[in-house]
Nucleic acid binder design. Structure first.
Lengths: 198, 198
DNA sequence: TCGACTGTCTAGCGCTGCTAGGATCGATGT
DNA sequence: ACATCGATCCTAGCAGCGCTAGACAGTCGA
């Protein structure tokens, strides 16, 4: 019995190893450098082993993406806890979201550009996915005011996502990032006044 | 002499043909179906001919993207012309942007997801790129109010881009699209009031 | 009419994701 | 203790990818 348990444990470890190496490789050299051969070499097994753990390369990317959602959720929740009022929490969550995207570009790509067919917002969605969305949606909905909270959250999320992706492909002026965030937050809070220039 | 002119004309036509077929193929079956072999077969020439027109596959995608920017610019300008005041023009441009992205998903992908290294916002940017950005930035800056117009434009653009991309990968509820647009427009105009529910 | 040149094609390189089939190793029943 | 069986893993290879070298034909100017 114990032998079989050890096997399953080793197998689970290898499963996580694949995900970790894929992520490291992607973050270091970009996703186009993550090939099944290179991945196999790094985990010190042959290619077919990958296919005994995942249905294909897409499934590996999806697994990395899922890990990303879990981390994002934890990150956003930590940001929320540190703040007092709903407005501060909203501001903190928005900032943390952009910081997360900037700090983990390859991971963010996996989550939003590569793994497009993760089941989103459906009952059978993986827990990490639901939590990720909830960690963002909670604080955002708090400041929706008279607005219907769901579309309000979607719009805020879309704006953050746009800032993250356009910013990274060099289509927004690199400085002014903080100013853009301020501007978005203030407008979404319904304040017309221009934020402080910096 | 006339013969050489004919040759150059035919060559230019073939150049456009490659771009057109690549776009059609992408729009019909997605960019992953656009391979050099398939493309060569459709234009009824062999593969190497493609490389006498473009440096590589990326250059073909970039050419399609550039065409997209030109069309988007024309589209947005048409939307602007039809409207009277700056607020209406802003609303129209925002709506038309999302409609364009929804109507030409593969083209939009080429413009913003695949051709990431197009020289954006630089002096040596292609004309179509500058025009595309200007057609959006003009009407948007009109309603920036007390805001610094450039970051304001960038935020609006990012929000629209986010709505376009998240919407297409099924991460926003399919209905409510118009409501989200309304909400974004109103907030960006500095109005706190909730838009009409529909 | 003949050589040079331009334009095009065939064939092939190294890479990709993925898989069939065989070898190897350890657990199990007698 | 040994033979058998089953799981596990690897070698080798497939089709397709982007891209290119070299052969070939057809056209031009001398």
């Amino acid at each position: 019995m114990a032998i079989q348990e050890r096997r399953e444990r080793e197998r689970a470890e290898r499963h996580q190893l694949i995900i970790r190496i894929a992520r490291e490789l992607a973050e270091a050299e970009g996703w186009e450098a993550v090939t099944t051969r290179r991945l196999a070499e790094r985990i010190e097994y042959s290619q077919p082993v990958l296919y005994s753990h995942f249905a294909g390369k897409d499934a590996i990317v999806a697994a990395v993406a899922l890990e990303g959602f879990a981390e994002l959720a934890a990150d956003l929740r930590a940001a929320t806890r540190e703040e007092a009022g709903p407005v501060e929490a909203f501001r903190a969550v928005a900032g943390r979201y952009l910081a997360f995207a900037a700090a983990n570009p390859a991971l963010y790509d996996a989550m939003f550009t590569l793994a497009t067919d993760l089941p989103f917002g459906r009952p059978d969605s993986p827990a990490a996915l639901k939590e990720g969305f909830a960690a963002l949606a909670g604080p955002v909905a708090e400041v929706a005011g008279a607005e219907d909270p769901e579309p309000f959250t979607e719009v805020v999320w879309a704006a953050l996502h746009g800032l993250a992706t356009l910013g990274r492909s060099g289509r927004l002026r690199p400085d002014h990032a903080e100013y853009r965030l301020e501007l978005l937050v203030e407008r979404m809070l319904g304040k017309e006044a221009a934020p402080e220039r910096r």
